[in-house]
Write a protein that binds this DNA or RNA. Structure first.
Lengths: 262, 262
DNA sequence: CAGTGGTCTAGACCACAAT
DNA sequence: TTGTGGTCTAGACCACTGA
């Protein structure tokens, strides 16, 4: 029995003010929410829905595009439209920069992913000196040029985040921080060795839809926003010693923070 | 001179693999990014673009729908398609729950908005006892029923966030916390008066596209994600005494946190 | 190969906004 | 009334997938 003759989906209400394609989207969304279609499962094809509802193909496609915009489904050319599975999320704990986590040989990302049983990778490594943007310059205390470290992180082959660290040249130039591999404990460990004992971090969080560039870099599905995180590291002399600009696939992350009630 | 004859937009590349509607979207996006069209400014009408590019109307509309999905533009029926202005954002600082902020008479939201020169409102107030969801029950330590306090916050008439606080009945029932107006300093002040001195908060942050319900409640434009924040308040005996579930219009907020480097 | 979604056309009628 | 976007139709051809 086809999914359409089995009453999974209802009829249209011709008296309703609601546009036909919205009604169809509503019915599909409700069916998904109720678990009638499970994660990864294929929805009825456009042709089947055209038959079922007696509407034109563009109308059905409009419905699908609504659901795609909501991040509920994704289309695969030649295969069908599928309920988008909720991918495993990476939890960023508020103690992720605790000094004790820097004592081991590998980077935090690698250690944590290994522990979670996933396969971590870092690629697109680029380290170079460049002119600081207005924003970065301000955050670092009016520096003109900076050392920029770019990299992209993947979990099980899926890109989940890319980040750029900016450091003042007078701190980073000629040190291991300017090398592709900053060594055990990452650049924060190196900063402390260089005498910049870290005091605290400030993080700013925004969420927005990705630019086409970000869609490419993170291979984002339709309807997936990004989390934009800007972290500034301060040493014990209250000097900003690093700014890290990170863009994360929002469906791959949950951020956790702890706030004092003081 | 029309904006189209003045070279604001280029021609299509018929040899390109890129779909025509994507090429048009690219050109409009670039023109917006370069400031050729400023915030709030009207883009060429569908009809003008049909003429300019020599394509059908659906093709032009497809381009617009891409830009809408990116949150770059919004359409106004009967008026045109406009570059979406970046609204003012509310910054949530990491010390926003510091005890000193509870000493005044008004709620944190009101005080802060007044200070920023905007006009704050709270509506859709609802306070009732109800069955705890599985998630809320777990977070509050296996309680069956809770006191739920729902409310929506607006700035200058624009809804920016709605939130529900959940409290265990044995704490909240019969207290001022169960009243629509919890009094000066809000429910956190009442909790402390009741002997639950607050120790710290834990916050979890996610970003995703809004449900149709959330689009309605927050009057969200297309292409605007939501930030979903779940905060748990712990008293000095490490007991969770409140869970607050908040959904915020992502274009209205930037969250700020401070992390120790300990 | 048949079935799927991706793109595109050339219309139509409607509802809303400004004049 | 004119111009705008919103909805919908009935096609067409294409590219990709899987049997």
């Amino acid at each position: 029995m086809s999914p359409l003759s089995s009453g999974l989906l209802g009829d249209l209400d011709p008296t309703s003010d609601r546009a036909v394609f919205r009604q169809i989207a509503d019915q599909l969304r409700e069916a998904i929410d109720r678990g009638r279609f499970r994660e990864g499962e294929k929805l009825p094809s456009e042709a089947e829905l055209v038959d079922h509802y007696g509407v034109s193909r563009m109308t059905v496609r409009n419905s699908f595009s609504i659901l795609q915009g909501e991040g509920l489904v994704h289309a695969e050319h030649g295969k069908g439209v599928f309920v988008r599975p909720r991918p495993p999320v990476r939890r960023l704990a508020s103690d992720r920069f605790a000094r004790r986590h820097r004592e081991q040989g590998k980077s935090a990302f690698i250690v944590e992913a290994d522990a979670a049983g996933s396969h971590p990778q870092v690629d697109s490594l680029e380290v170079k000196e460049e002119k600081a943007s207005q924003d970065i310059s301000t955050r670092l205390g009016s520096v003109r040029r900076v050392l920029a470290r770019r990299r992209r992180y993947l979990l099980d082959g899926r890109p989940v985040e890319f980040a750029t660290s900016y450091l003042p040249l007078d701190i980073a130039r000629g040190t291991q921080i300017a090398e592709p591999n900053p060594g055990p404990g990452g650049i924060y460990a190196r900063l402390e060795e260089l005498g910049h004992r870290l005091d605290h971090f400030e993080e700013e969080i925004r969420a927005r839809m990705p630019s086409p560039d970000e869609v490419r870099t993170l291979r984002l599905a339709a309807g997936v926003p990004v989390i934009h995180l800007i972290r500034t590291a301060f040493d014990t002399e209250k000097r900003p010693v690093e700014v890290c600009d990170t863009v994360m696939a929002a469906d791959a992350y949950v951020l956790a923070y702890q706030l004092p009630a003081t």
